[in-house]
Amino acid sequence: MVRSVADRAFLPTKNLLEEVGDMMILTGKTISSALRPPYPYGGEFVSQFLFAIKLCWFPLLVSTVAFGFGAPGLQAANFLVIFGALDRLGGFFVLASIREFAPFVTAIVLAGVAGTAITADLGARKIREELDALQVLGVDPVKNLVVPRFLALMLVTGLFNIYALIFGVFGGILATLTNGAPLGPFWATFFTNASTTDLWGSVLKTTLFGAIIAIVCCYKGMTASGGAEGVGRAVNQAVVIAFLGVFAFNYVFTQTLLATHPEILVPR
């Protein structure tokens, strides 16, 4: 009786910890498989890279412009206008767009569009026993399926971060123009506050977001069970876990970056 109550109370936690552990193991296996020869995943890497670009470029464009214009753009501008400091919007965009929103929006779009497609694809293959068949045919699914998706998603997420930065800042430009202000002061404060640390920090962070999304989505796809319903469940769980992972990692990464580079904290 006591045991069954304890099981019921702690089983979800135990399962969660087990899953996190399994994902860590998958990460280790993926990195070691990527580095160890042979390297049969070139073709699959290119096709996954192009697939992610094809799926994500438009949703990301719309999201970043809309988000940049709406949230840090118009709302921060409304606030800054009160103090007659609309020129500081450019400086705010370094913090808002480069450091936080561009990586976030990129991760959310990549997880929601490309990540779910990966989970659904691998989940369907798992249900149809294709993954078992691959293993039985002597093909390592980690090396042939996970590694190319992992590398492609990392690269694509890192590159898309720059794309998101550009369109996010474009949203800020639109907000400045909407307020009838000239763009010169916007750019002046933007470049005064921008630093290479912010840029590489942002790109590195987003690249690692891509790694988290790839591992979570591949893991959930490869462990899907219970037919079509199970694949749907796996996709749903993959998105939720990927978001949680990205948010948690973002906190750790950004705090570490700020602690190790305190100069970027100071508004100029």
Binding site: A133, V136, G138
Partner: peptide, 22 residues
């Protein structure tokens, strides 16, 4: 793992629905 992938080459498996690559 390497031994296992090698050993599997001894096997042919017909799965329930064929498990062909889609």
């Amino acid at each position: 793992d390497d031994e296992l992938f090698d050993m599997r080459k001894k096997f042919g498996v017909l799965f329930q629905d064929g498990a062909l690559f889609g």
